[in-house]
Design a binder for these strands. Sequence first.
DNA 1: TTTAAAAATATTCTAAATCATGTAATCTTG
DNA 2: CAAGATTACATGATTTAGAATATTTTTAAA
Lengths: 171, 171
Amino acid sequence: MHEIIDSHAILWNLDFMELLVPTLPETTQSNDTAASRFVDDYLLYQLASASHRLSSEFHAYVKSRGVKIYVWRVLACLVDQPGLMLTRLSALVLIEQSRLTKITDQMVGEGLVSKRADPTDRRKTMLYVTEKGAQTARPLIAQAKEHEEKSLRVLTAQERKSLKRVLKKLG
Amino acid sequence: MHEIIDSHAILWNLDFMELLVPTLPETTQSNDTAASRFVDDYLLYQLASASHRLSSEFHAYVKSRGVKIYVWRVLACLVDQPGLMLTRLSALVLIEQSRLTKITDQMVGEGLVSKRADPTDRRKTMLYVTEKGAQTARPLIAQAKEHEEKSLRVLTAQERKSLKRVLKKLG
DNA sequence: TTTAAAAATATTCTAAATCATGTAATCTTG
DNA sequence: CAAGATTACATGATTTAGAATATTTTTAAA
């Protein structure tokens, strides 16, 4: 539902370890028969659910490396866009501007990124991944690709192509 | 990225009003040329991004009706499953158990749902949407369907079918 | 059946996300 | 070029989410 929950919240995850969400035993009461819950065929729920499940998987890995999810997200988004200004990174990384300001400040303190005022417009903050940030990101990106590969195995080649094309249209 | 952000985060939204995320002006610096950001082709990012964008749209509507996002999510998930126990609702609605306990307590206070101990297992809490809850949910579900319909217009009939099938496989 | 283990939910504490607003720099336009 | 509007970012207060743990009830095993 989220993203529905996507909550925004929710970026990426990995199942090199077993699933986090154990299958629950059958419930005592209520219509398991009623095969038609509203949400089951609701696009926004399906998106949120898939996003949530897959991201949770990978997040377990990110956390196991001692990296905060939002740090991973920022690095993954920024690594290919040196000098990106804060507001644009905010839209890309799906994190609110005011929140991203705090996150990047913290990351500057940790030596993962650096900030520089844009000389042509001093309102703008240009962001750069530092060498340390790049070193942090590298193995995570490698694992992300591996996890993605695994996740896509349940789909046919056709389905994979179609999915990505469609998601680009929607996103 | 979220879901990457999926944020979690994020359930469902509606664009009966104009998009919330205004298109930003072109950035001064940096490689708009480099058409290959890692995240652009990363499944978990694409899922998070689509989920985030679409949900944000609909959330604007939910909020305009004075309904909290998590309340919407709970009602939407519970309305077809009377008597569902807390933990199972938690998995369905993509909200953590401890959080859901608080949310549902609050919703009981607002008369939107009711709780009843399962007579066969007093550990379990069975949840029910009240009439007031159903009345709250009804117009939101209608709008959700409308919004979904709108969202899917950018896709071909083929793509829609494929998308939902694939999302069910992934979610 | 007692005892240990597991399951379901509640509680507490902390972290993270959001909102509203503030400030400074730039842009617009008369 | 000066006044107001806009843009970019920062700050502070509040809400929401999450992790860890406690409590109660069932289940399983000895």
